[in-house]
């Protein structure tokens, strides 16, 4: 795994999900998700996404508003990069790679592994949506007998 790509993917993922790099690494899913993205969109698109993010981040410095503006202008509204970025968010939250929009597939003539699939059984149980709502992924990591009788613990970001 290329360290630079790996670091850039973690930085991008942290911004997109609202979770710290530390928290993301704790899931053990950074490498599988980077590989899944590469297999689906190819090396070139992946590199363009990560390089663009690195540029946006550098240009924004510590200015959060500028980061948001840059991210929306140069990635999220970009015809090529936007759908991929949104897929990365969804992958972190539920562990599923969703097939890219038809328009994207037509333009890219993708031959990658782009069909909707759960990255792995572990990516399901490590998905971030559940801790986001103070719950556990159904079928795993239960909170214990009677835990449901108390109000949920939701960490407000």
């Amino acid at each position: 795994m290329n360290d630079e790509l790996h670091e850039a993917f973690l930085d991008l993922s942290s911004t997109l999900t609202g979770y710290s790099r530390f928290r993301l690494l704790g899931t053990g899913q950074a490498d599988p998700y980077l590989s899944t993205t590469r297999e689906a969109v190819g090396e070139e698109v992946l590199a363009e996404l990560l390089n663009t993010y690195t540029d946006v981040h550098r240009d924004a410095g510590d200015d959060e508003k500028a980061l948001d503006t840059g991210l929306r202008a140069r990635i999220l509204s970009d015809r090529l990069l936007g759908p991929v970025a949104r897929n990365v968010i969804k992958m972190w939250f539920v562990g599923t790679w969703y097939e890219l929009p038809q328009e994207w597939r037509d333009v890219q003539a993708t031959r990658g592994h782009d069909s909707t699939h759960v990255v792995s059984p572990a990516s399901y149980t490590e998905a971030l949506l559940w801790p986001t709502i103070g719950a556990n992924p159904p079928g795993a990591k239960a909170q214990g007998f009677g835990s449901w009788a108390a109000p949920p613990t939701i960490d407000a970001p």
Binding site: L71, L76, I89, F93, T132, A156
Partner: peptide, 24 residues
């Protein structure tokens, strides 16, 4: 989640707040 990401254009900490608000 799909609606919040694909249609509501939410990401980051705002997405986390909206996910919790919508589902809980």
């Amino acid at each position: 989640l799909i609606e919040l990401v694909d249609d509501a254009n939410a990401y980051g900490t705002a997405l986390r707040r909206r996910v919790a608000d919508r589902i809980s």
